[in-house]
């Protein structure tokens, strides 16, 4: 949440960061404003880092960013046993974000090259998940055949 607040402050949003992070949203207009900030934050400039210079080399990082958010409000009312009108309402929402480095763009005396960033852990997880799925499906088929 604090990282989201810093990013919003950098973008100089018309909606204050306090109204977005850690505070209640009291109306659909505020909720719409928060969702609008979601689309403002996810711009191409947000996934490419600031160029970092190291001697003759300049490096720009490229990341994948995924952001999702949803809010809902509800209200209802009806007559009570005494004949009075009673009502209630509520709302809630949630969201999440993911960020992952994808590549590094390196500018040097030899020119520009794009170096992919290899996450061995995630590749291993994907590989073993596929192997497990293949094994489970094969075992299920064997049991069905028996």
């Amino acid at each position: 949440m604090s990282e989201d607040k810093e990013l919003i402050d950098e973008k100089a949003a018309p909606v204050s960061a306090e109204s977005i992070s850690g505070a209640a949203v009291h109306s659909t207009e505020q909720a719409a404003a928060v969702i609008g900030r979601l689309f403002d934050v996810a711009q191409p400039n947000a996934i490419f880092g600031k160029p970092a210079e190291f001697g003759d080399y300049t490096i720009i990082t490229a990341s994948e960013v995924t952001v999702g958010m949803g809010v809902g409000f509800g209200a209802g009312g009806g007559p009570t046993e005494e004949g009075d009108e009673a009502g209630g309402g509520g709302g809630g929402g949630g969201g999440g974000s993911l960020g992952r480095p994808v590549a590094a763009i390196i500018v040097g005396p030899q020119g520009v090259r794009v170096e992919p960033i290899v996450d061995a852990t995630k590749i291993s997880i994907a590989f073993f998940t596929a192997i497990g799925a293949m094994f489970m499906s094969w075992r299920a088929m064997r049991r069905a055949a028996q």
Partner: peptide, 12 residues
Amino acid sequence: GGGFVWNHPAAV
């Protein structure tokens, strides 16, 4: 009431 954004680097 909601939104989803996926941003992925494509090329330089």
